[in-house]
Design a protein around this nucleic acid. Structure first.
Lengths: 384, 384
DNA sequence: TCACCTATCGGAAACGTTTGCGGTATCGTT
DNA sequence: AACGATACCGCAAACGTTTCCGATAGGTGA
C-alpha cells in the first residue's frame, strides 16, 4: 500500500514509529525513513501577501538577480540599457526593496535608537522630533523607547536596541541609573552613543547639553537686578548633572552680588507635579519667606505660581519667579513666566548630527561635547 | 613567475586584461581565468564588533545551530540538559538574537509604523506614547514618521514603512491627502492599517476617533444654557472628517434650541497659528460681533482669547469661549478655558490594540470602528 | 593571427535565523 | 528476535539582499 518515496516500491516497507504525530515508515531496500507528505491543499489565500523581490524582476527579464541588484544601485558593471529595463520593470512590478535583508547582509540597519525617560512634557517629544528630522533626512529610521524613569526598563530598552542592531543610540538617562554596563555594551560592539540633556560623566562618549550653569546664572542675576534679595531655588534631583549645574549658577550669581547662600532656601524636587506642589508649599510657608524663586524648570515654576495665587501672594511684586525651558504654558499664564529658553529641537538635531557622523566615521571618531546656548526670556513674573 | 591558482604551474599562463583595476591571467591548461588574491593584511581591528550568533554557541558546545535555536525557544525536540547548557553558554557569551535575521525568515518584523502629520503640539506625542506603550508590551517596535502635513512626504513615509516591512500601520492623515493609493498599498500586501483622529471615509479599515459630534454638541449646548445666543464657530479645514463632525454638532445644538444657523458665523481655519489669529480677528471685527465662540481646538481658542484680551473684550461676560482637546495651556490661562476633553493617550492605546489584534488575526480580521467618549470640562471662559 | 583589453553578466557565498524532515540510539513489546 | 515507539539531533533549505570573482563576447593594436 505504502510506496517508498525513493524507489516507489511496496514490499520492503515497514512502520517505524511516529514523528510529530505522523506515521513514519522505513524502506529496507533504500535504507531510508520517510513520512507521507500531506496534501498540498489550501493554497488558496496567499496571492495577496507576496511582495516583489529582485528575483521576480530577474525572472521577468530573464537575467540574474546580481544584475538586477547592480542596476538598482550605482554600479559600473552594468549596461545602461539593461539598467533602464530593470528600473522600468521594478516600477511596473511595484518593487520595494526589503530593507531587512539588506541590513542583514550589510550588517547595518540604518536605524538609530532613542531612549528617553518619559514622553509627557513637551520637552522630550520635541527633542525626538528634532532628532527624527535629521535622521530621516539621512535615510535613518528611529526606534523610540521610554525608560519610564526606571533603571530596569532602561536596561531592557538597551537590550532591545542591541537586538535590533541599531547603528547608534541617543540617550537621556533615568534619574536613578548609576550603573552603566548596559551603555558600555554598545561601545563594546562599536555602536556609538550620544548622551543628551541627562548625560553621564563617567563615560567617554559624545554629549549634548545646554549651558545650564550660564542660564541659571543669568536668571538669578536678572532677579537680583530687579531688586530681589531673598532668592530661593527649587532644584531638581541631585543625581542629575543639570541639577548641579543650575544650582551652581544660582550659587555663583548670589556670590557675585555678595548675597548670602542659605541652605534652607534650596529645596530639591523630583520633578513630579505632586512634589512640585510640596516644594512650593514648603517655601511659601517659611517665616522668612523668599521674595523670589528660581525654579529648575517651567512646570515646577507654574505649580509654584498657582500655589502663590492661591495664597493671594502678588506676582511679581511680592514674589518673583523664573523658570527654565520655556514651555508653551508659561507664555499664556498670567503673569507670563520669565524663563530660560533652551533650544530644545536643536538638542535633538545636534545629538543626531553628532551620532550620524560618529556612525559614518566608525573607529576613528573622537567623542565631542556640545554645549548649546540658553537665552533668558524676560516676561512679567520677575519684573518690578 | 605567475602560478596558476589551480594547477600551480607557470608555463601556460598569459595575461588577459584587467578587471576592476587588477591584472587578470589565463591558464591555458586549466582553461581558467584568475586574478591574484590580495594580501590578507589589516585584520587587526575587528574584534570589537562581532556579536555572538547561534553558531558561536553551537561551536562552543559542539552541537548544531538548529539545536541551539530550538533550545532558545520553547521547542519539544530538545533535551533539558542541552537546553540548559545552551542557555548558560548564551548568557556567558552575552548572546543577543539578531532580530533582523529572524524577521527575514519569519517575514514578520515585529514593528509597527506610525504616521502623524506633526509633532509640535502635545496631542500627537501623547497618542504616540500611548501606542508605543501597548506596542512595547507586546514586543513590537515603533517607527515614527512625520508627514509634516504634506501629501508627498506622507507617500514617502508610506514607502519607507513598506520597505521596512512593518507588520501594521497607524496613521493620521495630512489635511491635504485626497488620494489613498499609498494606503491601499498596505492593504494589498495584507498589512493592516488603523486610522486615528484624522480618518479616511472611503477605506474599509479600522478607525479610532473621538465622538466629535457629541463633544461639539455638548459644548455648544453648554454655551446656550449659559445665555449666549450669537454663537460662532471657528472650524477646521473642511477636508477633515472631524471638522465636519464638530461642525455638525455645532449646527444641531443650535437647531435643538431653535437658534438660527448663520453662514457667516462659521470660519474655517487651517489650524496654523497665523490663520487662527486671522480667524479670530475676522470674528471680533464683525459689526454684529458674536457673544461666544466654539473653537475647533484649544490652540485656536487660546489665540482667540489673546486676541480678545488685546481688545479689552471681557471673557466670559462679553465673549464666551469653548475649545476642544484640553491642552495643558488651557488650564493655566486666565480665565481658564472651558474645553472638550478627549482621552488622547487612549486613542493611541486603542488604535494600537486594534492594530495588534488585526495583525494577529490576519486574513479573518474584520475592521472595526471605535468612537471614544468626550467630556466637557467647564472652566471660567464660558460661565456667566 | 595572436595577445590582450573592455564591457557586461552570472554563479555562489554570505548575513543569522527558523524549520521540515530524515537519521540514530535506545528502549519497550510481542 | 524483530518490530515499533520515543527522544533527540543534524542537515539543508529558505528568507532577500549584496558582492566577490570568474566567465564570455567582442574589440583593438601589432
Amino acid at each position: 500500500m505504502i510506496k517508498c518515496t525513493r524507489c516507489s516500491q511496496v514490499h520492503a516497507i515497514s512502520k517505524s514509529g511516529t514523528v510529530r504525530g505522523k506515521q513514519r515508515y522505513y524502506c529496507k531496500d533504500c535504507n531510508m525513513y520517510f513520512t507521507l507528505p500531506e496534501e498540498p491543499a489550501a493554497e488558496i489565500r496567499q496571492h495577496k501577501k507576496h511582495m516583489t523581490t529582485i528575483v521576480d524582476i530577474a525572472k521577468a527579464l530573464n537575467i540574474s538577480k546580481s544584475t538586477v541588484s547592480r542596476a538598482l544601485h550605482e554600479h559600473s558593471d552594468i549596461n545602461p540599457q539593461t539598467k533602464a529595463a530593470v528600473l522600468e520593470m521594478a516600477q511596473q512590478l511595484d518593487y520595494q526593496p526589503n530593507l531587512l535583508a539588506k541590513s542583514l547582509v550589510k550588517s547595518k540597519s540604518n536605524t538609530i535608537g532613542i531612549i528617553v525617560p518619559e514622553f509627557l512634557t513637551y520637552f522630550f517629544p520635541t527633542i525626538i522630533m528634532g532628532a527624527q528630522q535629521v535622521a530621516a533626512q539621512a535615510g535613518y529610521n528611529v526606534i523610540i523607547c521610554q525608560s519610564q524613569e526606571s533603571y530596569k526598563t532602561e536596561v531592557a530598552n538597551a537590550n532591545i536596541l542591541l537586538a535590533n542592531r541599531v547603528d547608534g543610540v541617543l540617550i537621556s538617562m533615568t534619574r536613578e541609573t548609576k550603573k552603566f554596563d548596559h551603555i558600555k555594551a554598545f561601545e563594546k560592539h562599536g555602536i556609538p552613543v550620544v548622551f543628551f540633556n541627562r548625560v553621564c560623566d563617567e563615560m567617554n562618549t559624545s554629549k549634548v547639553l545646554v549651558n545650564d550653569y550660564e542660564g541659571a546664572l543669568k536668571a538669578v542675576e536678572h532677579l537680583i537686578k530687579n531688586g530681589y534679595r531673598n532668592i530661593a531655588h527649587i532644584a531638581g534631583p541631585p543625581s542629575l548633572l543639570l541639577t548641579r549645574n543650575r544650582l551652581g549658577g544660582y550659587r555663583d550669581a548670589l556670590k557675585k552680588y555678595n548675597l548670602p547662600f542659605k541652605e534652607d532656601l534650596v529645596v530639591h524636587c523630583n520633578l513630579s507635579k505632586k512634589d512640585a506642589v510640596q516644594c512650593a508649599e514648603q517655601l511659601l510657608n517659611m517665616k522668612n519667606r523668599p521674595d523670589a524663586v528660581f525654579c529648575v524648570n517651567d512646570p515646577v515654576a507654574i505649580q509654584l505660581m498657582l500655589e502663590a495665587k492661591k495664597r493671594k501672594i502678588k506676582i511679581p511684586s511680592e514674589l518673583g519667579i523664573v523658570g527654565f525651558s520655556n514651555e508653551p504654558s508659561g507664555e499664556v499664564i498670567e503673569p507670563a513666566l520669565t524663563t530660560v529658553q533652551q533650544p530644545v529641537a536643536d538638542i535633538g538635531r545636534s545629538a543626531a548630527d553628532i551620532l550620524l557622523t560618529a556612525i559614518k566615521q566608525g573607529e576613528d571618531y573622537v567623542p565631542e561635547m556640545k554645549s548649546l546656548k540658553t537665552t533668558l526670556i524676560v516676561r512679567e513674573s520677575s519684573k518690578r
